[in-house]
């Protein structure tokens, strides 16, 4: 079966030294995967290569077999959607208008949104549980509500892949869990492939079946959370001492950094 995301020998960056070097990663359809790594490891650049925003200088990114860079804008919108850390706009859009922006590539510039587009928008708002607030100004919502609206906007694209770029990092633990349960449900019910970039290793371990660990633009490790998230691997990549505990009751992994103790102190 063709993998949802197939990255082979990818080297990419922004003009200067490449951020990603010779990276080979593949994510099967229906997977829920985490991309972890220290700041500057190339996690966001990897996502931008998947959306075609950042061009590869060597290697290729294929989405369901087609080169990502060669997808037309509407094809791209139907294939991959992004939920970033936050979406801000100075304009007073309502929730429904923001979600409708997710249909941008499908809308006709000559006609108002068709019945089908409006139905998809309503359905997306329902799935992300924001239908009740559809008339409210987006700017007035709380951080957690805004992220659910952005997820609804992503769903309105009807994508086969959703990329989360630190989508929960400024939310409290309850809302973090909320958003991740929602993503896990979408993954289960709609078979959407999910790739999430995160600094929250514990959250990634709890929700992802596969972990890709980046270090300095190269692949450090990939596989099951229990195989990748070991003290040795994490210490080598994050350059600090970590403790990894397995909960005796539910088997969940907890990674905590250990304090640096200076000698003689």
């Amino acid at each position: 079966m063709t993998p949802a995301i197939d990255i082979a020998g990818l080297t990419a960056g922004y003009g200067g030294a490449p951020v990603l070097r010779d990276l080979t990663v593949s994510v099967p359809e229906g997977e829920i995967a985490a991309v972890l790594g220290p700041n500057g490891a190339g996690k966001t650049t990897l996502l931008r290569c998947i959306t075609g925003r950042c061009r590869a200088s060597a290697g290729a990114v294929r989405l369901f077999g087609s080169p990502a860079a060669r997808l037309s804008a509407p094809q791209r919108a139907r294939t991959v959607a992004v939920v970033p850390q936050e979406v801000e706009t100075p304009m007073a859009f309502t929730v429904e208008e923001i979600v409708t922006i997710g249909r941008s590539a499908a809308l006709s510039r000559w006609r108002p949104p068709a019945k089908r587009d409006r139905a998809i928008v309503a359905q997306s708002m329902n799935s992300a549980d924001v239908y009740a607030m559809r008339g409210r100004p987006y700017a007035e919502l709380s951080g957690g509500e805004k992220q659910r609206v952005v997820i609804a906007m992503a769903l309105a694209q009807q994508p086969r892949i959703i990329l989360l770029d630190e989508a929960t990092s400024h939310l409290d633990m309850n809302h973090r869990l909320d958003i991740m349960e929602l993503i896990a449900r979408l993954n289960r019910e709609h078979k959407v492939t999910v790739v999430m970039v995160s600094h929250d290793i514990n959250l990634a371990a709890a929700f992802c079946r596969r972990v890709v660990l980046l270090d300095g633009g190269r692949l450090a490790a990939q596989g099951l959370p229990s195989d990748v998230l070991t003290p040795d691997t994490l210490q080598a990549v994050y350059r600090c001492n970590v403790r990894v505990r397995t909960d005796p009751e539910d088997g969940s992994l907890t990674v905590t950094p250990a304090r640096r103790t200076t000698q003689g102190a």
Binding site: P74, V80, E88, E97, G102, S104
Partner: peptide, 16 residues
């Protein structure tokens, strides 16, 4: 409308 969310998001929703 899409560009009001910034050009990165506009790209992501399928706008050139």
């Amino acid at each position: 409308n899409a560009l009001c969310l910034g050009s990165e998001m506009a790209h992501n929703v399928g706008v050139r």
